[in-house]
Design a protein around this nucleic acid. Sequence first.
RNA 1: GCCGACGUAGCUCAACUGGUAGAGCAUCGCUCUUGUAAAGCGGAGGUUGCCGGUUCAAGUCCGGCCGUCGGCUCCA
Length: 681
Amino acid sequence: MSVTVTLPDGKPLELPDGATGADAAAAIGPGLARAALAIEVGQAKDGEVPQLRDLARSLPDGAHIAILTKDDGPKALELIRHDAAHVLAAAVMELYPGVKISIGPPITDGFYYDFEFPGGVTISEADFPKIEERMRAHVKAAEAFVREEVPVERARERFLSERQDYKVELIDDLVRGAAHGRSAAAVGDGAGSEGGAGRGTATEAGNPITSVSLYTNGPFTDLCRGPHAPSTKTIGAFKLSSVAGAYWRGDSNRTMLTRIYGTAFFSKAELDEHLERIEQARARDHRKLGRELGLFVFSDLSPGAAFWLPAGTIVWNELVALSRRMGRERGYTEVKTPQIFDAELWKTSGHWGKFREHMFTLEVEGREMGVKPMNCPGHLHLFAMQRHSYRELPVRYSEPGLLHRNEASGVLHGLLRVRHFAQDDAHIFCTEEQVQDELAGCLEMLFDTYAMFDFDVRLELSTRPQVRSGSDEMWDRAEDHLAKALEARGLHYELNPGDGAFYGPKIDIHITDSLARSWQLGTVQIDYSMPERFGVTYTGADNAEHQPVMIHRALFGSYERFIGIMLEHYAGELPLWLAPVQAIVLAVSDRFGDYASEVRDALLARELRVELDARSESIARKIREAELRKLPYMLVVGERERAERTVSVRAHHGGDLGSMTVEAFTDRLSGELSASYSRPR
RNA sequence: GCCGACGUAGCUCAACUGGUAGAGCAUCGCUCUUGUAAAGCGGAGGUUGCCGGUUCAAGUCCGGCCGUCGGCUCCA
């Protein structure tokens, strides 16, 4: 008796019956046997999803297999990070008797484990050294990860007797999930491979789960779907990084657990490199750059609201100018609507019911008013106050509107999550027949806008949420429109089910910041609901009143957030057209102040943003300071330049570009500027 | 909002177990008049986030509040 499996290169490998992944690796070679971590069974073909399994499990006859080693990148890292999460739990259980464990999956850059510590015990980073020391002992001991399949009842009793309530709940949910026909994987934690059912047990609809898998390393046993590496020793280097609160099952009504984050790599060198990357990312944190470059500051007296300094205001205004120019070229018309409205407006829009807690409200002569958290209701009301013919449509109202949202204190984050901000907002009112053209126009404008910034953007289509307004038929139509518009452009997008606005689905633009956090920027939304709520109409060719379709769109999203992301993206080195100071004239000594100001004035006359540094300081110092301010161009002028009527040009990072006439330099800059402006069509 | 940590001069940071706050940079003044990443000297600058408590004595310990940071939940 034997089994035959197929290797990645297509060659068959014959093994004795009952052979394991480890046997397969050994049969291929002793080096591979040593390096093997896990084994992938199956191939990504015909809808089949390869399963990663423990090496110790026996191989099914006829399977395609691939041995996983540390050279297999993210998959291999994920494996040992999951191992590390178990090691963390093992260490914590030894150090804190009575601790309750919940889940501990690998995540993008590491892993975490959530615990409920016994009463009175709090964990802080100060506790990490001793936890890490225990973890090291487990890694050093090269404890084998041993899998066992246990009947559900026995596993349940085991965790019940250990007072591991969260594990009991997970098991109960697994059983219930299977009974309800959901896959076992879907009722796990959703974040990783914890808490899943043992494979090989029935997970089909309606079939009850009869067993679950447990993994043991050393003294620690956890409910876990696996897989794991053969032993803890493959965790080459690890480090705990932070501690945070996290709600059990992500539900803010349930217990807050203590989450310990960490990361793991195969080697110390890789870990160090990772830590170094984080350090560098911190250096380009927009909050730090904003202060250092004199763009904006924050004050305790207005949490969640930036104070824009002159330099930052220039950046802001340039973005607004870009938005206005591009809008003008595309048939948008700018409007201005009030900041404060009677609650009536918010009741009509539905925001009063859904977001009142997050609005700033005030009472004016006995009337309840709300500061606008968004522009749409104002635009709807404005549109509704006029009579409209179908001949006018589409109407495209834009407004760089100032908005206030009373965000919970805990979510504020630099410019990326604020209470006071502005959006490059616009609302299009059009006929049903015009929807596709308008959406295409929005997407085109979106890509033209983002082309100015070489960002890596990710598109998501967010569909109907649980709580929403409008009929299902409306939602079907709206979602179809967005998907169709995306597909018409051949755009790749991810589906984000249930994440749409309460009035309509949306296409969201997401971007990743320097610390790998994801943020939403622009959005294009389609809305059949608000026009109905506000009763807005236009007169059709048939002389009857019809309801227009509304498209909401903001391409930058909020200017604040966009500038924050952009600063991190460029590490503070803004492109010339956005740089608050495009060039600085540096006088070699204050004796050349006259010529230096002449040069400055010449550049000002060409509408360049230029500064003059004629202090009695060394030229080396002036250059250093200009470099630290990341100013794109430095123009050194002294004896020679005055005599020759030239400037010596130095570019940030670019070094000395030699001397040229002021004319030549301004031409060079104008050329650079028009190149950036000519990109969007 | 929830969990944890943190809050000292404009910025970055010191101040042993409680003993009366200090440095660098920046700012200001003077000297130097400078050629591609920091000239020299001197001065000024703090009710240690705010309020209360313990103590002979609080930056340090305790409580409350505010804010910030890292997460969680939320995000029209």
